[in-house]
Design a protein around this nucleic acid. Sequence first.
DNA 1: AAGACGAAAGTGGTTGA
DNA 2: TCAACAACTTTCGTCTT
Length: 307
Amino acid sequence: MHFIKKCPECESTNLFSNKDRGEVVCKDCGLVIEDKMIDFEQEWREFDGDDEQSKRRAGASLSYTQFDQGLGTEIGQKGDLYKLEGKEKNKFFRLRKWQYRISTAIERNLKLALAELKRVSSYLKLPRSVEEESARIYTLAVQRGLVRGRSMESVVAGALYAACRRHEVPRTLDELSEASGIEKKEIGRTYRFVTRELGITILPSNPADYVARFASSLRLNAETQSYAVQILERAQKSELTSGRGPTGIAAAALYVSALIHGEKRTQREVADVAGVTEVTIRNRYKELLEELKLEKEIKKIKKMKKE
DNA sequence: AAGACGAAAGTGGTTGA
DNA sequence: TCAACAACTTTCGTCTT
């Protein structure tokens, strides 16, 4: 399907291929590697009428990041005017005026919001699939009048946050907050409100989804990273993860893993990239040691150092 | 001197009466 | 609607390397 094995930006092999969108995304740094990948899937032909819905492909793809999904008709494109005379010309102006009127607040709001959405999304280097998803969420929110009483920007941020989690490339609220300039709690609030109102299922985010990104910004190697994921799996079985902030757990697992693999990072360093405090890391770290009997391994490392 | 550790008090959100 | 509660943060003093 695709031949790229490594992310050109961060050398990560943790790539995610989204065939529907024709793109490959680096789960670590969020870089979209191949945007216009050719669809190599078999080209279907219609043999009878029943197939036409499922197999026919025609026209430009729908895109929610165009405010009218690329399907609108503009009245009054440049050349048109010269072809018309007299009554026709009047009709033309009437129609254009009419269209102007029905460009309601909703549509103008959407245009503005989608611009903002693209800005934030490119700042965070989010994959295109997430951008589309969040645009869809935002559009739905507008249609249900959920933006009323809230700032447009905060709803955009909330939609992005939701889309990130659904696509398993979660960003923290802090990151969203920094990119959008909206307060963290405000984003959280609108996020909860919008997802609840739209009935979007929010699967609790998996700590392992954060590991790759944190590890890459800490410059930890692949073994350390995969060991951290193993730790997380064991932690999940011991029910250490429920109710806790996923970022804190991911950070602690990485911290332990780095320790064991001789790539020690300070608690502060790990805490900073994960957006939690050292204290939280310490607490999770302590729990991990107790539950998973990792003390032995830590002691081994210490002994090896002395020798 | 820097990092790790832990206690205590404060914050914002959830839950259950 | 309010109080109890859990998770997390901030701050700060102490111990370890």
